[in-house]
């Protein structure tokens, strides 16, 4: 952990507060075990994180980190899950349409849009959305329904939850619709050349049916791999730019803030959480493989 060795971060002095006497800082250093060698400190922290689960923050005294992460997780999950639904359906629509109308205006238009989606920095797009929905056009019918920034829990009212998240969902999904749509189109176009699709077409199946039943199915395999990777990483905290711009106190923002504050216990907890989700999504992806890929199922 590189953060152990960073200067300007004597946690004892920060805990002691401004204008603290040297004796106080010393006492706190002893109290919190900052005078012990680093590996020992690390071991103590891991024990507190996993065994006793009462690891507390260095910055906010008495603030337990595990409940913090637990509280931030649903926010990130809500954000990423909604965005994922959008980008899966969005990109399938884009990919399929573009592949079906290959080399027509529709294809070209969609691909340009997808490329623009890929090219926009997500935080800038978010600010743009905020500007439009919160300020410039907030008083018009178009955006008057948009609530203030921040997260509202699902169980406090699903409709409010939905309204606060719609714009963040679209913002986060734009990039992925672009990437996935492009990949899917390329895969579909290629699948069209494959023997089994040709056979299906020769049998007289309608092009739409061929597309959906056969070509799409094969093209979904790399799609699912990508999705697993991205979803895991996003849930693990990579959605932080979206969270920062929209004032959502999710895991990404928590991690970012912990890193800025050099709040070691919090960083540990969030990194552990992130690894957990990366592993879990990888496992889920493996299961989905079995479902969609006949070759895997066969064995």
């Amino acid at each position: 952990m590189i953060f152990f060795a960073t200067p300007g971060s004597d946690p004892a002095a920060r805990i002691a507060g401004r204008n603290a006497a040297q004796e106080t800082v010393q006492a706190i250093r002893k109290d919190f075990g900052f005078d012990k060698p680093l590996p020992v400190q690390y071991a103590i922290m891991m024990k507190k994180l996993f065994v006793t689960r009462d690891l507390t923050s260095f910055v906010n005294r008495g603030l337990e980190v595990v409940p913090q992460v637990m509280r931030a997780a649903p926010i990130t999950l809500s954000l990423v899950f909604g965005a994922a639904v959008l980008w899966v359906f969005g990109s399938i629509a884009v990919g399929v349409l573009a592949a079906m109308y290959r080399d027509t205006v529709i294809d070209k238009g969609l691909m340009i849009l997808a490329l623009i989606g890929v090219s926009m920095p997500v935080f800038w797009l978010g600010e743009l959305m905020n500007l439009v929905s919160q300020s410039r056009f907030h008083d018009t019918w178009l955006f008057s329904w948009v609530p203030g920034l921040g997260y509202k829990p699902f169980f406090d009212g699903p409709w409010m939850w939905f309204k606060t998240l719609v714009i963040p969902w679209f913002t986060l999904a734009a990039l992925y619709i672009g990437i996935y749509g492009r990949v899917l189109r390329a895969n579909l176009v290629e699948a069209y050349q494959e023997d089994y699709v040709r056979t299906a077409r020769a049998k007289g199946l309608s092009p739409g049916r061929v597309m959906l039943r056969h070509a799409l199915r094969m093209s979904m395999i790399p799609f699912v791999t990508m999705f697993g990777l991205d979803f895991g990483v996003l849930v693990g905290g990579a959605a932080l730019l979206t969270e920062v711009v929209f004032g959502l106190n999710g895991v990404g923002r928590l991690t970012y803030q912990a890193m800025l504050n050099l709040d070691l216990p919090m960083i540990l907890a969030t990194v552990m959480y992130a690894s957990f989700f990366v592993v879990v999504t990888n496992a889920i992806v493996d299961i989905i493989y079995v479902v969609i890929d006949p070759r895997v199922r066969g064995h």
Partner: peptide, 23 residues
């Protein structure tokens, strides 16, 4: 509890020096 101002505000109370050394 090693209060942040224990050494700067309340060190003038008789016996505070001992408390600061061994809280």
């Amino acid at each position: 509890i090693n209060g942040p101002t224990s050494g700067s505000f309340y060190n003038n109370i008789v016996g505070a020096d001992k408390c600061l050394a061994e809280s």
